[in-house]
């Protein structure tokens, strides 16, 4: 049995990599992939805790998180398509229409 703290550390490392990618990349698709990475790190932590306390509720929560992530990807990629069509670019710095 692997201690739950190891899973939490792995989840933290993956989440931090996601944060790093979100901040350093300018390509909007890779930024979006970093968000997916963070969601998966959180899912891993929830599953590890669910296993530790022997409850299935955590797995139900992860199931719902996956549903929301799938919906988010569908809408997000449609927005990226619109962004590309209007700006002819996928650089996040070009999305400055609402910038003060």
């Amino acid at each position: 049995m692997v201690p739950v703290s190891y899973y939490i550390l792995l989840s933290g490392v993956l989440f931090s990599i996601g944060v790093l990618g979100f901040l350093i990349r300018r390509n909007v698709i890779v930024v979006f992939m970093s968000v997916e990475l963070m969601l998966n790190a959180a899912n891993l932590a929830i599953i590890a805790f669910a296993r530790n306390i022997g409850s299935l509720t955590g797995q139900v929560i992860v199931f719902l998180v996956m549903t929301v992530a799938a919906a988010e990807v569908g809408v997000g990629l449609a927005i990226i398509m619109m962004f590309y069509r209007n700006k002819k670019s996928v650089n996040v710095d070009d999305g400055n229409l609402m910038k003060w």
Binding site: V68, E72, G74, V75, L77, A78, M81, M82
Partner: peptide
């Protein structure tokens, strides 16, 4: 939510 997301994605990506 999935249904709404599907409709929204089709609406957004429409030319």
């Amino acid at each position: 939510l999935l249904l709404i997301a599907m409709v929204g994605a089709i609406f957004l990506a429409r030319r």
